[in-house]
Write a protein that binds this DNA or RNA. Structure first.
Length: 164
DNA sequence: GCCAACGTTGGC
DNA sequence: GCCAACGTTGGC
């Protein structure tokens, strides 16, 4: 049984379209500097797990597609690089603080599933994403939530085709 | 261990 | 750009 996740990125920094352009459509998910998120990267994500790609801090925040975890947690090298914006002088190779996983694009949704929409559904009320003040950049998504979102997307696509 | 100050996140 | 919410830091 695989687990499901949601991973945030600011599209101005790294968008799902950037991921689509990478060789093999793969990329290390680096720069996470929050302990709760770190623990999930390091301890809980497994190869084959699926994750929603979420665009945050932008004109239309929302879920924009799906990716797969292709490499389990390993050291985030950007923490050791003084030139990097995610440099953390307190993280040392001998005593590393930050971890990353590698992700691979599975698909880009035909349109954004906006946060605005996600907030309307009581089925998703337990997601940290829709709760006030939540800043977690990586979070688990329950089986039920995952299925609900995919079903909603599918229904919306169908009615879109019919309506157009 | 407390807690005020500060920096960051991220929706709006 | 604003600002509420939150996590981290550091003095004590």
């Amino acid at each position: 049984m695989i687990n499901h996740w949601l991973m945030k990125s600011e599209p101005t920094e790294f968008s799902i379209h950037d991921l689509a352009q990478r060789p093999g459509q793969r990329e290390p998910w680096d720069g996470v500097r929050n302990y709760q998120a770190r623990n999930m990267l390091r301890d809980q994500m497994r190869q084959g797990d699926l994750a929603f790609f979420y665009h945050s801090n932008c004109a239309e925040p929302g879920i924009v597609g799906i990716m797969r975890i292709v490499q389990e947690g390993y050291l985030d090298p950007t923490a050791f690089d003084p030139e990097n914006t995610h440099f953390d002088p307190k993280s040392h190779p001998g005593n590393p603080r930050w971890y990353q996983v590698d992700v691979e694009l599975v698909r880009i949704f035909p349109y954004i599933l906006p946060l605005r929409e996600l907030k309307k559904h009581p089925e998703l009320a337990n997601m940290p994403l829709v709760q006030r003040g939540n800043r977690l950049s990586i979070m688990p998504v329950s089986e039920e939530e995952w299925k609900f979102i995919l079903r909603f997307l599918h229904e919306a696509q169908k009615s879109n085709r019919g309506g157009a």
